[in-house]
Design a binder for these strands. Structure first.
Lengths: 174, 174
DNA sequence: GCATGGGTAAAATGATCGTTTTACATTGAG
DNA sequence: CTCAATGTAAAACGATCATTTTACCCATGC
C-alpha cells in the first residue's frame, strides 16, 4: 500500500478512536510504520495531516452517499456506521477540537457540510420531482441527528430517522 | 462569587471554546484567578473538572428545557444557543475527546442523553395525550440534529427542526 | 493568642507535545 | 557509475502537559 494512503487511513482511525489532540505524532508514526521525517515531508504538520484525513474521508463518505432515495441514503448511513463506528461527525469534532481556529480544518468542515446539503437537495428532487428547501432541511437535520444519536443509541437512531424522513416525504408529496 | 462556581463556569467556557484537551490547566487557573493547588483540592484532576463541568451544564440545560410543548422546547434551544454558542453537544465532544475511556465522563454523557430522552417523552404526552415512542424518537433526532447543524447553519437549523417537529406532531394527532 | 482551614505564589516533577535535525541506507534513472 | 529522491533511525529542540510540593499568608473560632 502507498505510504501516504497508509499514513492517512491510520491517522483517520486513531483520530476517530482517541480524538485529534489526544493522539500524538509518536503514536501516529509508530502505528503507520513510518518515520516522523517522512510524515512531515508528506503532510507538513499535524494540522495538515488532520486536513488531509478530512479530505479523504469526505471523498469516501460522499462516494457512499451518492444515491437517489431517502431509504438508500439512510441505508448508506447505516453501512457507514457499521464500518466506521459512531462517535459523532469527525468533521465537527475536528472543528471543535481546534476551536474553529485552523482555516484548513474549518474549510474542510464547511465543504463537507455543503456537499451533504447539496446531495440531499438532489435526493429531494428525485423523490418528489421538485425542489423543496424546507423538506431538504428537515432531512439534513434527521441525518445529522442520526449521526450523533447513533453514538449513544446505536443503529436504532438511523432506523428512527429513516421512518421520520419517509413520513415527511409522504406529506410533501400530497 | 463562590470559588468553585467560578472555576467550573470558567472551565466550561474555555472547554467549549477551545476544546477539552487543548485547554491546559495553566490557562484554566489563570482565567479563573485561582492557584493550581486550590483547583486540585476542589476537583481532584482534569477529568474530575471535566465531569464537574458536565454535571453543572446538565443541570442548567435541563432547567431550561423543562417545558411542555415542542414549540417551547425549540424556543428554549434557541435561547440556549444564543447564550452559549453552537459548537455541537459538549457532552458528545467530551466523550469523543476522551475516546469514551473515562468512566465519569462517559456516565455524564449517558445520563444527560437519557434525561433528554425522558423530557421529550413527557412533551409528547403533553402534546398528543399519549405515549408515542416513534414520535419521541423523531423529535429527539431533530433536536440533536438542530444542535449540531446550528454549528454551521446557525439558528436557521433550529427553526427548521421546529417546523418539521410540528408537522410530525400534527400527523401523529390525526 | 494561637491553631486550623483555605487560600496564595512559584518551583519542581517527569512525561509528552509537535517539529527539526543529523547521519545513514536503499533504489531507480541517466 | 553516480546522482537525486525517498526512505529510515534516533536524538535534540524548546514548549507545554497534568500534577505535586514547598513555603507562606490570613482569617475565623475556640
Amino acid at each position: 500500500m502507498d505510504i501516504r494512503t497508509r499514513l492517512i487511513s491510520t491517522a483517520e482511525r486513531l483520530f476517530d478512536r482517541y480524538g485529534f489532540t489526544a493522539t500524538g505524532m509518536d503514536r501516529l508514526t509508530q502505528a503507520a510504520g513510518i518515520s516522523s521525517r517522512t510524515l512531515y515531508k508528506h503532510v507538513g504538520s499535524k494540522n495538515g495531516l488532520m486536513a488531509a484525513v478530512l479530505g479523504e474521508r469526505d471523498r469516501r463518505f460522499h462516494r457512499l452517499m451518492t444515491v437517489d432515495s431517502v431509504d438508500a441514503l439512510f441505508a448508506s448511513l447505516e453501512t457507514w456506521i457499521d464500518q466506521e463506528g459512531a462517535r459523532g461527525c469527525l468533521f465537527l469534532r475536528a472543528w471543535g477540537e481546534t476551536g474553529g481556529d485552523v482555516p484548513e480544518i474549518a474549510e474542510a468542515m464547511a465543504r463537507h457540510k455543503q456537499r451533504l446539503q447539496e446531495r440531499i437537495d438532489e435526493i429531494v428532487v428525485a423523490e418528489i420531482g421538485r425542489r423543496d428547501d424546507e423538506l431538504a432541511e428537515a432531512l439534513l437535520l434527521l441525518f445529522e441527528g442520526a449521526t450523533h444519536a447513533a453514538a449513544y443509541s446505536g443503529s436504532a437512531a438511523i432506523a428512527g430517522a429513516r421512518r421520520a424522513a419517509r413520513r415527511l416525504i409522504t406529506d410533501a408529496r400530497a
